[in-house]
């Protein structure tokens, strides 16, 4: 699947990549992912909580993550997500693109020797 590289897709792509990255640490439910993102990014990346779920459904439809129902830590039924092999490949590609993108942007915004 072609990675999103247009400017408007950037944020989407970023959220997707962040979700995939989150799931490389283990199986998590949606709320768990939201909490992890809050803590990891330290609120630097503002994510509206609700927008997480369409992203999860989209990733699932694309086969990058898969879901199964299980019991949460509080004994409630919850939907747990896990990254697939295809998801890991996508994450690697996204990470590489992000690195290239941020390096290019950095080169412009932060001149060397400044």
């Amino acid at each position: 699947m072609a990675s999103r590289s247009d400017a408007s897709g950037m944020l989407h792509g970023t959220l997707d990549a962040l979700i995939l990255k989150t799931l490389t640490w283990g199986v998590r439910h949606g709320y768990g992912i939201a909490r992890w993102l809050e803590e990891a990014t330290g609120d630097a990346v503002p994510i509206e909580e609700g927008s997480l779920y369409p992203a999860l459904y989209r990733l699932e439809r694309r086969g990058l993550i898969e879901a199964e129902w299980g019991l949460s830590e509080l004994g409630r039924k919850a939907k747990f997500y896990r990254i697939t092999a295809k998801g890991r490949r996508q994450l690697a590609a996204d990470t590489e693109e992000w690195t290239r993108f941020s390096a290019a942007v950095s080169k412009v915004l932060i001149p060397s020797g400044a």
Partner: peptide, 18 residues
């Protein structure tokens, strides 16, 4: 959470495609 109805509707439609 934000606009819960809209999120719900979007998820439903993506879920059906899935």
């Amino acid at each position: 959470f934000g606009n819960i109805e809209r999120v719900n509707a979007t998820c439903r439609s993506i879920g059906k495609q899935r």
